[in-house]
Design a binder for these strands. Structure first.
Lengths: 391, 391
DNA sequence: CATGTTTGTTAGTAAACCTTACGAACGGAA
DNA sequence: TTCCGTTCGTAAGGTTTACTAACAAACATG
């Protein structure tokens, strides 16, 4: 028995198509490929792009002229380098021709908004107090802030990106967001209708992990744990976000930690991660310990213990996840004065001691480099990805 | 500020291309699409396929004639149904023209091999005692069994699929398999050179989860826990296998369970999942308890307790994973007399009680329906997927 | 028996890529 | 200075793919 002419290796590229292919899909594919290269590296000639993509100079020229027609790409004069041959014309994404508007709805009391450049830099930002608004009132606050931010843009807007707390489905419907009092709120569609702009709504932790991935540079699988009023996570595997069957992936706040009970949680269970790790719980525990302490050294010690125990609890939850997914990179987002120190040290230690060292030896756990704007920037990544295929 | 002509929604289909697109890729895409439909549903006419795919009858006809030329598709006479119009010519994958050869190397003492039809049915099987062979000797045993099985095929062989324990990379190199004494063993390449057939080597648990996905029917994200001499898992998200950064995804056997210590594990830590749940540990614990019991009822009770506690420990490990990935379907593979009963009941209970009920309420945990042949059938899925793009 | 319907094929068109060829612009050598 | 090789970008023509339009074959029905 021998191999047959019928058998042909199917490359990874084409596995499991779910839709028919048409010539124009090739064009779109290559268009995105070119935009992606220009977006990441910038300042390349048509010939450079041809070499990198494997497409011919002819095809690249054609694509570029299309992109220049849309004002997405511009020529930036000739390369100065002294080489034989006709000098190359340098190209780049037209980074000032468009701007991106994003909102971060994850603050417990305050909504934030910003205008960003295509590079993800925050050009201007503003905010609006939620003042306890819920349901339709909260929606109106969001719409109000959005129109403010849109008005402050100084270039055509590529799209609007929004990071919302709670469970958000692929269509941008907020299935459930207790803080804002939303159930099945079709935020994306409604705001799209109001503004006439393309809008993308995603979960805040998912936006955050996208920001970390795109602007942090590393091409690893990534888990981002966002600690705030609650605890949530965003997960990126193979450069794509994991949403979960019911769009609730990353909702680890109410998973029970360990086998020795723990503090009572608002959800009714004991020992939930959120009951150990949320910002309100940590600050109040530290405050209480400090108040009860005899002196500054005691207070310091008690604080250290509280943070270490919280970090250990986080590590206990993360260890099975790290093992099951063979993760090598975990990022924390939240108040650095709480997370960056004993807490993160304890988390790393705990994960390493509870998993197989040979597989997780080079695990990295660190604070995000995106700071407070992480959700705003992640929402911008969503827009870039949706509108241009770039990230 | 308004939306611009430049912005265009990029559909999910084309997100993040990593390679250039060419006209022939369209053809491959559509070819796979057609094969997939025929493989799954079977017995359709060209016109049916055109309607389902959205391609025209002309294009379908052309594709079908290509596939018939390769003997992959055959005509099966005309549809008998009484309808107006010219009767349809029914088509199907030529399910008897090719066979698949697969090996399961995950048995602790015995290698298994089989010839399967394109449908994944086991046509014949054989085995070979490992007799403690390790390293090159183990490789020779594998090669010997493989040539036996290949010789017993009765039709051209589409390809060879192999499920191996240990850590297997994307190129089919067994990075580390302690049981077989392999380190960086390029199994796929070597066997491909020997046999002249396309060979695919994957981790046994990953093969198993593919089998469960393809033949189990459900289109959910899936976690399969394989309990044997060790404990491993295979994970499928969005119909694609998760391998992990170092190809060690699913290696949860040596993750520590709970915060109350536990049995000492061979790896040096205390309370590893494998130290609670592996088949040798369960059987010996049950044997000991039975021997020590005063009567049959006591023995029964002790056995029940041992299995319940093991199931609870599995649940403790799985709860964070289920929460983080928002999984709804977990499958157990292994000796049903151990797993199917108190153990799986306790696991389900534990997961539900340790996660947020609203998100995991409709969690399913069940035994596999694939039985002993799960790895053999999963390896066949790999071959189908690699050679035809079908699964 | 005529009509309408469905199937599968033939002929010609549009879109996307490719190959081949060429002018333009530069550095370096005769 | 002049010539030559190199590199860049563009032009012209060919190939592959899928599409539209049209048609013959085969059937059910009034």
């Amino acid at each position: 028995m021998t191999a047959t002419g019928a058998s042909r290796m199917i490359q990874d590229r084409a596995l499991r198509p779910t839709a028919k292919g048409l010539p124009e899909h090739i064009r779109l594919n290559n268009r995105i490929l070119v935009l992606q290269l220009l977006y990441r590296a910038g300042l390349q000639s048509r010939a450079d792009l041809a070499r990198e993509t494997g497409l011919t100079r002819v095809t690249i020229s054609d694509l570029i002229s299309e992109l220049m027609g849309e004002n997405l790409v511009i020529e930036l004069g000739q390369r100065q380098e002294s080489r034989p041959g006709k000098p190359a014309t340098l190209l780049d994404i037209n980074r000032v021709a468009f701007q991106i508007v994003t909102l971060d709805l994850s603050g417990h009391t305050r909504l934030r908004g910003a205008v960003l450049s295509l590079d993800g830099a925050v050009l201007s930002s503003s905010g609006l107090e939620l003042s306890g608004a819920r349901g339709e009132a909260a929606f109106n606050k969001v719409a109000e802030l959005l129109s403010q931010v849109i008005a402050s843009a100084t270039a055509p807007i590529l799209g609007v990106g929004i990071g919302s707390p709670g469970i958000v489905d692929r269509a941008g419907v907020v299935r459930n967001a207790p803080n804002l009092g939303w159930r099945d709120e079709p935020l994306q569609t409604r705001l799209q209708d109001i503004t006439g702009l393309p809008v993308r709504v995603v979960n805040d932790a998912n936006a955050a992990v996208l920001a970390e991935h795109s602007f942090g540079g590393a091409d690893h699988d990534l888990l981002l744990v966002k600690v705030g009023h609650g605890v949530g996570a965003g997960l990126l595997i193979g450069s794509r976000a994991i949403l979960g069957e019911r769009f609730a992936a990353g909702e680890i706040g109410h998973v029970v930690v360990g086998t020795d009970d723990g503090p009572l949680c608002a959800c009714g269970k004991s020992g939930c991660l959120e009951a150990w790790l949320s910002v309100p719980r940590l600050t109040s525990a530290i405050q209480a310990a400090t108040a009860a302490a005899a002196n500054a050294a005691d207070a310091e010690l008690a604080t250290h213990q509280i943070l270490t125990e919280a970090g250990r609890r986080l590590g206990i939850i993360l260890a099975p996840i790290v093992g099951a997914l063979n993760l090598l990179e975990i990022v924390l987002s939240g108040p650095p004065e709480l997370l960056d120190g004993p807490l993160s040290t304890a988390t790393t230690q705990t994960i390493l001691s509870r998993t197989m060292a040979t597989e997780t030896g080079d695990l990295t756990l660190r604070m995000t480099e995106q700071g407070q704007d992480i959700v705003l920037r992640g929402a911008a990544v969503m827009v870039l990805s949706a509108q241009l295929g770039v990230s």
